[in-house]
Structures are given as structure tokens and as C-alpha cells.
Write a protein that binds this DNA or RNA. Structure first.
Length: 564
RNA sequence: GCGCCCGUAGCUCAGCCGGACAGAGCGGCGGACUUCUAAUCCGCGGGUCGGAGGUUCGAGUCCUCCCGGGCGCGCCA
């Protein structure tokens, strides 16, 4: 990649000038303003302190070295402002970008930074006591996209869903379902949601009378599980493993972990319970592993669970949790460290919660109290791509507010269509070319120098940066960086489409632009692939009538003054 | 009280490891379809980057404090 070549060139220029590398390494930026060159480095500014010389003087030394070095594509180096080194490249570098994109195809934007790693990524893991609620969709979309990002960096990624199917909550679920089955109200601390009424009715319809509480539980649990899998499948999320907590108990994993911790001398008895010296491992205080009633705690089971993930051969564990669980991170990490695993495992990605608003008021969600907005409810009204893109448009460090009225009623305005339309336009051009009998000649026989329009350069610049965007997004566990890129790229493409006709009477220009659009297709499709959003070949024409219906009312008999 | 996260344009949000005049979408105003799908494009207007200090040649980005908001601080899961 050109950035690597330039970095190398700068490194050599530094050596030739007898200067050390800047403390933070050699930074290469794409300047916000075109006049500041194709690439820019603040290396001289960073070096001023250590070298004890004015930044501009250092910049001038580097400028001279770079100009003398004959770096490919490098046309001009200028020293600007306080000591920025601006690199102006010949247009030929963009042609290399195009060739690199089409040569790599589906692999364009991938890297090998995580090659050899086997990463276990656990996400969603909502309790199997009811349908997945709308907020859970955020973790599904984010987790799946992060999995795609890690895979794009060469990791072998295992998607996992943890089913808490062994604790007291399943008892409550059983009792609640059974109560509904008998036409009674659920227990005070049970699940009061309407969905259990419906589930109970179905249970009765399928099994009739005489179902025992435990039979109701098994039936209901399987029913819920199938629902979860189906809902997640609707937004394109599939798990490699649905891990049952029951396994840990049945197999004796939990007992084994307790024995191991005892062996390491990090447990003690107090008040009839068994405690873990978590505070010795950075936790705020010690934690209970076995309650005085003999049952193990959630933490204890979770330590056993994560130990199993390592036992299955994963080299790194990542959990995506809602921010309401952030208090448990240290305890779990302490437990694994006590067992001898590296500090910081599992890595926990905390996501802030989703707020749902309808009719201008916040909708509180709880399976226990009953008011649920299920992911499925949203998917019944909104395209799965819109749903995913909505969840992936924002960083997970901030709480997301989703206005159900906006999402469901104005989905046409969602940016996902803007992006998909760009892809459809590319596909449409390809179809038109085929109809006209125009085929792309080998790229080596095409004069890419004809791609000199600012719009064309803008597209190639965006494509050039794409691999770095993916790498950053993977490192930061931040899929919204890809969303941002894809929107910017779509904007650039729409501008190009408007200003530069691809299929023209000029054969050489047509060839060059066909290759450019092919490169755009590759970049767009790859980015959408990471987001898990479809890249359609065509999009239905919007009916102008529908458009009007959304806007100011057209003249209609009797419509004047009528309430909306 | 302690911990984590957030506070950027009227609204919803981008802004990497600090770099050169702060961005997008929506909304507002005004333009562009005999041309590869106008779910598009172009232009205009709109910001004390919550506040105060500090570090730095340089801070929306780092540090401290304050204000405002969200979420946690169980022998619950």
C-alpha cells in the first residue's frame, strides 16, 4: 500500500538526515484539505523536541532527502505551517489503488494482524425466558459486525451465545408459564409479560391438559430458544455455539473450578459461604462463590464457563456486555487470573444501553414487568437492513435512543437506502454495459490516466483509505467506523454518478470508468459485508405517489383542512 | 459516597494514537430529471465542541476539578 511505501521512504529520509524516529512512530494523515497534499506527516513537529531544532528546519531536511530519494509516485514535497510535511503524489498512485482493489476483490480491506488467533466472541446471551427485546438487537448487530471485523483481520472467530438455563430465573419462568397455563396470575417475582399468556395458550393447544410444571418448562424453554434463533436469523445473525449453563453443572466443571481455586489457596469460608479472594486480583472486594444454601453464584458458574472457552482452544476471549453489567467485569477477570490465565481475560466490550422512544415518551422494557418491545415486532415493520444499519450507525460508548415512530414510519429516509442505492446504480451500469455489448478489457490495457475528474479521484482516495478504516475499526471494536466510511463513500459515488457518465461514446474513457465502478463495487460490497447489510443489484423504483403522500398533501377533493 | 459511560449545528450523531480554517444526515430556504433508476445531485443558512483550569509548538481529542445525564455498586441472575 502506498501509505506503507511512504512511511518507509520517510524512515529512510530520517536515517539519511541522521534523525531518530519520532516518539510515537511515523504518522501519516490524509489532510482534510486537498491543498495540503495527498498525504501529510507531522514527523518534523514531533521531532522538534528530541532533536532540539526548529520543526521547519527538520522538515526542510526531510524534504530534501525525500526529493532526492526518487520515491515512486511522489511528485512534490512541501513544508507548510509550523512544520507539516505535505506529500503531493502524481495521479498514478490512484491508478495503483484501483488495480489493487480489483486484484484483491473480496479480500480488499482484509489484513493479517490477527492471523493465527482463535477468538471466542460471546454476545447477546439474553436470558432464555422470553423473546429478544429491541435493545438486544443492538448487541446482535454490533457483535456480528465485530466478528466480521476480527475475521477480516485474519482471526478465526467463534460466535457464541451463553444460555443461563440453570438458575433461579428458569424456575421463575417455569412457575410463571405454568401459572398462565392454568389461567392464573404469575407469582409476584415471576414474568408478567403478555407473551407468556400467548405461549401458555399454545402449550395448551399442543399438549392439552395434564402438563406438569417441569414439562411446561422444557416445552417453554425450547419454544423460547427457537424464537431467539429465529429472531436473530432475521437480522442475519447466526451463532456457532449455543452454550448451555446446565452443561457446566452436569459435567462437573463448576465443582472442578472450585477445587482448583481451593488448591491455589484463594478461597476461604465465612458465614457459611465460600469466598474468593478477588481483592487480591484487583477487584474491589472479595466475592462469594458458594452461597450458604450450597448453591454456586453466577460468578462462580461464569468463571467455569470462561475456563471452558479456553479449554476449547480459544486464544482470546471477548464478551460484549450491556453497561448494566460493568460491575462484574473485574470479578470475572480476577477469577480467571486466579486460575492462571493472562490478566485482562476475557476482554469485555461494554455497550451502553438502548432507549426506546415511542410517541415522544420513553418505553421501559422488562420481561419481568411485562412491557416488551420485541426485536421481532420491529422486524415485522422494518427492513432487517435498516435495523442493522441503525444499530451500527453509532458508537457503543454512548446510549442509543431509537425513536420507534421514526424507525418504523420513516424507514425510507434511513441512510441504508442511500448506500444500497449506490451499489444498485453500479450494478445497473454493469447491466447496461452488458446490454450494449461493452465488456471490460483487461485492466492492463486500459488507460487509467483518463480518470482525472475530481469525483473520480475522490472515489479512489476513499478506496485507498478503506483498509486502514477496517483495521482501525477492528482494533477499536468500533463497527460504526465502517458505517461512516460507507456513507461517505456512497456520497462520493452519487456525486460521481451525477457528474461523470460511465457509458459514453468515448471507448477509452468508458473502459476506464467501467473499471473504476468495478473497484467501487468491490469496496462497497466488502464494507457492507462487514456490516452485514445486503448489497442489492437493483432497487425498486419509488412510486412518486407515495412520495407525495409523505409530504404536503396534494390537492385532493375535500382534503383541505382535514386533520392529518 | 465509589466506579464506568456520555455531554459537538434546531434534532440524531461522526470525528483514529492530539496536528493546519470542526463534519454528515434529518429539518429550513433556493435550484437541477429528453441523458447509465431523482431512494440522486448542487447551493445557502446554522456550532462559546457542557464549564473552568492544566500539559503541549499545537487540545473537540490528553490530565484535574465542577455542572448535567445514563448505568452499576447483593450469599440476584
Amino acid at each position: 500500500m502506498i501509505a506503507d511505501d511512504l512511511r518507509t521512504a520517510i524512515r529512510e529520509a530520517l536515517r539519511a538526515a541522521g534523525l531518530p524516529e519520532p516518539p510515537g512512530g511515523i504518522v501519516l494523515d490524509v489532510p482534510k484539505q486537498r491543498e495540503h497534499g495527498d498525504w501529510s506527516t507531522p514527523a518534523a513537529l514531533a521531532l522538534a523536541r528530541v532533536a532540539g531544532r526548529p520543526p521547519r528546519e527538520i522538515a526542510q531536511r526531510l524534504q530534501a532527502e525525500l526529493e532526492a530519494a526518487g520515491v515512486p509516485h511522489l511528485a512534490r514535497v512541501e513544508v507548510a505551517g509550523p512544520g507539516h510535511l505535505n506529500l503531493h503524489l502524481a495521479p498514478s498512485w490512484l491508478h495503483d489503488v484501483l488495480r489493487a482493489v480489483v486484484a484483491a476483490g473480496e479480500r480488499y480491506g482484509t489484513g493479517d494482524a490477527l492471523a493465527g488467533q482463535r477468538i471466542n466472541l460471546e454476545f447477546v446471551s439474553a436470558n432464555p425466558t422470553g423473546p429478544l427485546h429491541a435493545g438486544g438487537g443492538r448487541w446482535a448487530a454490533v457483535g456480528d459486525a465485530i466478528a466480521n471485523l476480527l475475521a477480516a483481520q485474519g482471526a478465526q472467530v467463534h460466535r457464541e451465545y451463553y444460555l443461563n438455563d440453570a438458575g433461579a430465573q428458569l424456575d421463575r419462568f417455569r412457575d410463571s408459564l405454568y401459572a398462565r397455563y392454568r389461567g392464573e396470575a404469575p407469582p409476584e417475582d415471576g414474568y408478567h409479560g403478555q407473551y407468556l399468556v400467548e405461549m401458555a395458550a399454545r402449550l395448551r393447544a399442543e399438549r392439552g391438559d395434564g402438563v406438569t410444571p417441569d414439562e411446561a418448562l422444557e416445552w417453554g424453554y425450547r419454544h423460547v430458544l427457537a424464537g431467539l434463533e429465529q429472531d436473530l436469523g432475521r437480522i442475519g445473525v447466526h451463532f456457532d455455539t449455543w452454550f448451555s449453563e446446565r452443561t457446566l453443572h452436569e459435567r462437573g466443571d463448576v465443582a472442578e473450578v472450585l477445587a482448583l481455586l481451593d488448591e491455589r489457596g484463594v478461597t476461604y469460608e465465612k458465614d457459611g459461604a465460600k469466598w474468593f479472594r478477588a481483592s487480591d486480583f484487583g477487584d474491589q472486594r472479595d466475592r462469594v462463590l458458594v452461597k450458604s444454601d450450597g448453591a454456586t453464584t453466577y460468578l462462580c458458574n461464569d468463571i467455569a464457563y470462561h475456563r471452558d472457552k479456553f479449554a476449547r482452544g480459544h486464544t482470546h476471549l471477548i464478551d460484549i456486555w450491556g453497561a448494566d453489567h460493568h460491575g462484574q467485569v473485574r470479578s470475572l477477570q480476577a477469577g480467571l487470573e486466579a486460575l492462571g490465565y493472562p490478566p485482562g481475560e476475557p476482554e469485555v466490550v461494554l455497550g451502553q444501553l438502548v432507549r426506546l422512544v415511542r410517541g415522544g415518551k420513553e418505553v421501559r422494557l422488562s420481561k419481568r414487568t411485562g412491557d416488551i418491545i420485541a426485536l421481532a415486532d420491529i422486524l415485522d415493520e422494518v427492513d432487517a437492513d435498516v435495523t442493522r444499519m441503525t444499530f451500527l450507525a453509532q458508537g457503543i460508548d454512548s446510549a442509543q435512543t431509537i425513536d420507534l415512530d421514526v424507525v418504523t414510519e420513516q424507514s425510507m429516509e434511513n441512510p441504508v437506502y442511500y448506500v444500497q442505492y449506490a451499489h444498485a446504480r453500479i450494478a445497473s451500469i454493469a447491466r447496461r454495459a452488458q446490454e450494449a455489448g461493452v465488456a471490460r478489457r483487461p485492466v492492463t490495457q486500459v488507460d487509467l490516466g483518463l480518470l482525472a475528474h475530481p469525483r473520480e479521484e475522490e472515489l479512489l482516495r476513499a478506496l485507498a483509505v478503506y483498509p486502514a478504516v477496517v483495521a482501525e475499526a477492528a482494533t477499536a471494536r468500533a463497527p460504526q467506523k465502517v458505517t461512516t466510511w460507507v456513507r461517505d463513500f456512497a456520497r462520493a459515488f452519487h456525486g460521481f454518478y451525477r457528474d461523470c457518465r460511465v457509458l459514453t461514446g468515448d471507448d477509452a474513457l468508458t473502459q476506464a470508468r467501467l473499471w473504476l465502478t468495478e473497484a467501487c463495487r468491490v469496496g462497497l460490497a466488502n464494507a457492507l459485508g462487514i456490516l452485514g447489510v445486503h448489497a442489492p443489484e437493483e432497487m425498486a423504483r419509488l412510486d412518486p405517489q407515495d412520495e407525495d403522500a409523505q409530504g404536503p398533501a396534494p390537492a385532493r377533493p375535500g382534503a383541505a383542512g382535514a386533520p392529518a
